[in-house]
Design a binder for these strands. Sequence first.
DNA 1: AAACCTAGTATCCAAAAAGAAACCTTAAGC
DNA 2: GCTTAAGGTTTCTTTTTGGATACTAGGTTT
Lengths: 121, 121
Amino acid sequence: MADENCSRVETALEILVGKWKPVILYQLFTNGTMRFSELQRALPDITKKMLTSQLRELEYHDIVHRKIYMQIPPKVEYSITEYGMKMTPLLEAINAWGTMHIQHLNELYSEDRKLEDAETK
Amino acid sequence: MADENCSRVETALEILVGKWKPVILYQLFTNGTMRFSELQRALPDITKKMLTSQLRELEYHDIVHRKIYMQIPPKVEYSITEYGMKMTPLLEAINAWGTMHIQHLNELYSEDRKLEDAETK
DNA sequence: AAACCTAGTATCCAAAAAGAAACCTTAAGC
DNA sequence: GCTTAAGGTTTCTTTTTGGATACTAGGTTT
């Protein structure tokens, strides 16, 4: 019972973590449908391998849809599924909390920065 | 601008990820104040090293408070800070989404299980 | 005087995740 | 018949995480 709540939280987190998923989701949420190469261009620091694996995981979770055009050279389009759209409130909640928390950390540790500023003068 | 929203999401996630943080938070949220050894007993699979490092990170983020009693043998108590309590709605949102998502995955991939069931007969 | 207690550190090692770079496919264009 | 294009996969290396074990401090108990 103790661990059931946790496993749900952990399940939810699995989908978000992996360093690149938030940015990938962000791209797809804001740009709608995107080709593989468009995602690569939008996220220059991610390798093909990583991009592929993260997209596959999101696809497995029914968050992202992968549409293959049978043509050469290949064309593959990625988009957020209808089910994936249901994540919007969650992402917004996380975003809101993150925003507030960055602010909070700033207030907590701003003393350090004041000292640094004073030293550089 | 594209990455600012992401960085907030990522900041929020940093606090939750690290495999053990959700369980640690769960313990502290449900049990209130706990000693180091109590946490160890409640989470037998986590090593001292991990428990220490996760608690220190949570402490840095002002989610967890660490109270040291100057006595021998040492006594240290951990608890959720007042600020940390503000995470409750977020944790509940993540938990709710996770619950729904597990259900969704079940429905999506239950075909496999039906086949397995048929085979074992 | 030896052993025990708590809350850790320190050191070393294994495993997992991530990155870099080369390779693959197949049709069209030069 | 060589190159290009898109969307990957494969292989190898590096980095990051996590775990096991031993050790510490210093007062209390045996």
